[in-house]
Design a protein around this nucleic acid. Structure first.
Length: 249
DNA sequence: GCGACAG
DNA sequence: ATCTTGTCGC
């Protein structure tokens, strides 16, 4: 499995190779050009806006519910899910082998072809630079990014405690990562923060999956967030998976 | 041997 | 990830 991951990392492209304007994925309602003269071109702009898919799982016994929610200009255009039997246990570094099957099953039922896939798992922030987001991005050869709440490996360039919304710092490769020390493999990104409080919210750790560079990954997540800690595609897929799970319980 | 370790 | 009540703060 580890050798397969090295091959995947070798095949993965950690550079920007996608055919859409990264700022066009912006979710926030006030970002949709509201200027008086832009009204006429609004419909056309939405129709051409990139399709962004959020993918997330919920678990029930030995089954995985993999949900996909596709957004275009902030609007949900498609939702699907798949329920699959789990066979492999969770092992840090091998998450893609446990959740990859369920995710592929869900994505195969999709009618549209997403321009970007957002996963709840690391991409390049991985021992062999081939986390779940990279693995699946390569399998579908679709631009992808990984978003997680906890850092698997790598080292933040600066302390990440109590940072303001929008703040970011590079995650650099260390001894645990299979590449040159100091290589920027992702970013810590503060998507949400308490104004004035004793406690603070931890940042998200985002990394390139496939066909995206680290800095652009942070730009994309920034554009996809809308007041909540998780970016909209992921947040909606998360709640959709929970909804299916409760219907199944 | 010890510690670290996405979901 | 999941099991779960109350609780503190905006």
């Amino acid at each position: 499995m580890e050798s397969l991951q090295r091959e995947i990392a070798d095949t993965a492209v950690f550079e920007d190779r996608f055919g859409f304007d990264p700022t066009a994925v912006d979710i926030s309602s006030d970002s949709t050009q509201q200027s008086l003269g832009a009204a006429a071109s609004d419909t056309e702009a939405t129709a051409d806006a990139p399709l962004v898919a959020g993918v997330d799982q919920a678990f029930l016994d030995h089954r995985a519910i993999s949900a996909v929610v596709v957004l275009q200009a902030g609007e949900v255009v498609e939702r699907t899910y798949a329920v699959t039997e789990l066979s492999i246990p969770y092992i840090p570094g091998l998450l893609a082998f446990r959740e990859g099957g369920p995710i592929v099953a869900a994505l195969e039922t999709l009618d549209c072809e997403p321009d970007l896939l957002c996963f709840d798992g690391s991409g390049r922030i991985h021992y062999r630079q081939a986390g779940l987001a990279t693995h699946l991005g390569v399998v579908f050869d679709t631009p992808s990014i990984g978003i997680v709440k906890n850092l698997l490996c790598g080292t933040p360039r600066e302390s990440v405690d109590g940072r303001p919304v929008g703040w970011r710092t590079p995650i650099e490769a260390d001894d645990a990562v299979d590449c040159a020390d100091g290589t920027v493999i992702g970013y810590a990104y503060q998507s949400r923060q308490y104004e004035s409080s004793n406690r603070h919210i931890n940042p998200l750790y985002v990394s390139p999956g496939h066909r995206v560079v680290a800095e652009t990954t942070a730009d994309l997540v920034s554009a996809l967030c809308d007041g909540y800690k998780l970016p909209e595609p992921t947040r909606l897929a998360d709640s959709y998976a929970d909804e299916i799970k409760s219907d199944l319980s």
